[in-house]
Design a protein around this nucleic acid. Structure first.
Lengths: 206, 206
DNA sequence: TTAGTTTAACTAAACGTTTAGATAATTATA
DNA sequence: TATAATTATCTAAACGTTTAGTTAAACTAA
């Protein structure tokens, strides 16, 4: 005899995690509310009961997760650490974030593709002013004053570092097949050191 | 008096360029065939006459443009040039490609987001084997033999260089607002030299 | 005439959303 | 404590709209 719980205590969470998968696979326009309901094993109307619309469900996911990840990254940076350690920790953190939140990558990319209005404000709030970016800028500027680093534009350098890291993490399926990378796990782990190494050699005076 | 050509000789081209705009703005799933027809100022049935389906129209665009851009980039690289010149030309070419083909960026991003099956093969064909990637690998390996470059992993270095370049070109709307970049045109132009400078200093032995 | 184009009108299916109501859990009242 | 009222959770079915794709007829140029 089957016991069917009427009041599932976690219908809302089931919808959210089903929706992440659906949006990741098909995007907002391509996502089907019926499919989300099926994946979550709830009645379709439940989605409208907890979230007022497909759009609102999507926005909820964006807000929750990008805020969470922004905070998570900022916590990792301790300005008391050496530049080497800071940039290595950051490279590690980027890698860990992508490892654990892979489903969000397609959502992020499609957001950028459509202008990123839903995500832009969140990222600016988290990263700017006293946040990650300001901290990194201080590290580089301090190094320049110390005579350790060359007189590079610190904002350009930050973009370069972030780009070196994120580009591979975002594009790894394509990059791996173009570069014929066999042992991807090993390549990805080695990459953390390689990136920091290249970046710091690029900054340091000869 | 207005002359209205009935048998417009370029309906096919008008559909294609209207479709690029539509796909860039809304993606494949969000694109509406009626809107493409309106933008192109042709009847909807014309789209099915020239291209059999929305999907096929989309694939046609992907094939045409990514093949074109891949070839364009490869032509820019002359292995006889110095490493400095090669990487600077490449940074310039990336910038020029994005400047002239900005509409394709959202299409590219959404392709990556959905696994890139439609685009992957084209990129591999163009970039790999005797292509751009092999040429760059030769430059770096030659530098290592010369004692000019440190013993870095050349594939990792290539990804880093491409990432430094493409990340900003792709994400510039977000990056510009996070870093509060005012004069974007100037920043973007300076970036070409900054990127090559950082990369080569990173490669060179001290 | 005839083959190649172009059109408006059409269809079947899919879609997001709403509805009306059922059931279970919680709270208020006597 | 027992019962009534209220609220929260859930469901099946349907609604009105939008969609990609079709079609049959009309127009154009040779």
């Amino acid at each position: 005899m089957e016991i069917k719980e009427k009041h599932s205590p976690n219908a809302e969470e089931k919808i959210l995690s089903a929706a992440i998968k659906e949006f990741a696979e098909f995007g907002l326009a391509g996502a089907r509310v019926d499919r989300i309901a099926n994946r979550a094993e709830v009645n379709k109307a439940m989605i409208y009961y907890y979230f007022r619309s497909k759009e609102n469900l999507y926005q909820t996911i964006i807000n929750r997760h990008f805020t969470r990840i922004g905070k998570l990254l900022e916590e990792k940076i301790d300005p008391e650490d050496s530049p080497e350690l800071i940039f290595f920790k950051l490279a590690q953190s980027y890698d860990a974030v992508f490892e654990k939140n892979g489903e969000l990558v397609p959502i992020f990319l499609r957001e950028v593709a459509s202008g990123g209005d839903r995500m832009n404000k969140i990222l600016v709030d988290i990263l700017t002013k006293k946040g990650l970016v300001a901290k990194l800028q201080q590290i580089i500027d301090r190094g320049k004053r110390n005579g350790l680093f060359r007189k590079v534009d610190s904002r350009q350098a930050i973009i370069s570092f972030v780009g070196m890291n994120l580009y591979y993490l975002i594009m790894s399926p394509i990059v791996n097949s173009v570069l014929e990378i066999k042992n991807q796990k090993e390549f990805r782990q080695k990459r953390q050191k390689e990136v920091v190494d290249l970046f710091l050699h690029g900054l340091e005076v000869k």
